[in-house]
C-alpha cells in the first residue's frame, strides 16, 4: 500500500505558476462576469416590466390594466429576487472554513431551496396577472374566437405545471443526496 502512495506522491507533475497580478486580473474578470449575468437577467425582467407597464398605461379596460400591472410587478419582483440571489453564493473563505460535507450540504440546500421555491419566486408572481388576463379573455372574447383565449390559458397552465414539476423532481433528488450526506456526517 505504501508503494501505491509513493507512486501517487512522486508522480511527475508540472506545477502551475500564476502571479498575484494575474490572479487580481482574473478575480476582476470573474466579478465582471457575475455582474454581467445578473444584469442580463435583470434587463430581461425589466423589458417585461416595461412592456406590460406600457400596456397598463395604454389600456383603458380595467381588468387587463390590473393584469398588466400585476405582470409588471411580478417581473420586478423576480428581478429583485435575482439581484438578492446574485449577491449570495459560495465565497472561497466559506470553502476553507467548511469541510466537504458542510460545504456540499450548504450548496445542496441552497439549490434545493431555489428549486423548491420556484413557485414562490418565479412562477407564482405571474399567476395572478396571467390568470386574470386568461379569464377575462375567455369571458369577453366573441364565441368564435374564444378558443384562442382557452389555448392561451391551457398553454400557460401546462408550461407552469411542467416547470414546477421538473423543479420539484430535481429538488427531490437533492433531498436524497442531503439525506445521504447527513448519514455520513460526524
Amino acid at each position: 500500500m505504501e508503494e501505491l502512495r509513493d507512486i501517487w506522491q512522486n508522480q511527475e507533475v508540472e506545477e502551475m505558476k500564476i502571479s498575484v497580478e494575474e490572479l487580481r486580473t482574473k478575480a476582476a474578470r470573474f466579478r465582471r462576469g457575475i455582474v454581467r449575468r445578473n444584469l442580463t437577467e435583470q434587463l430581461a425582467c425589466g423589458a417585461v416590466a416595461i412592456w406590460f407597464g406600457t400596456e397598463f398605461w395604454k389600456t383603458a379596460v380595467v381588468i387587463p390594466r390590473i393584469s398588466f400591472a400585476l405582470i409588471a410587478a411580478a417581473a420586478l419582483y423576480v428581478a429583485w429576487h435575482i439581484q438578492t440571489r446574485g449577491r449570495a453564493g459560495a465565497v472561497p473563505v466559506d470553502m476553507a472554513r467548511s469541510n466537504l460535507i458542510e460545504f456540499q450540504r450548504t450548496e445542496l440546500e441552497k439549490q434545493r431551496d431555489l428549486l423548491k421555491g420556484v413557485w414562490r419566486w418565479y412562477l407564482g408572481p405571474f399567476v395572478a396577472g396571467l390568470g386574470l388576463l386568461a379569464i377575462w379573455g375567455m369571458v369577453v372574447a366573441p364565441t368564435g374566437r374564444r378558443w384562442s383565449a382557452v389555448a392561451f390559458a391551457v398553454t400557460s397552465v401546462l408550461i407552469f405545471w411542467g416547470i414546477g414539476r421538473l423543479n420539484r423532481s430535481a429538488a427531490r433528488k437533492l433531498e436524497e443526496q442531503l439525506e445521504e450526506l447527513k448519514s455520513l456526517g460526524a
Binding site: M16, I18, V20, L23, K26, A27, F30, V91, P92, V93, M95, A96, R97
Partner: peptide, 16 residues
C-alpha cells in the same frame, strides 16, 4: 487548477 488557485488566493483574505 486556475479556479483552485483563484479560490485559494481569494480565500486568504479571511485566513484564520
Amino acid at each position: 487548477l486556475q479556479e483552485i488557485h483563484l479560490a485559494l488566493w481569494r480565500s486568504f483574505a479571511g485566513f484564520q
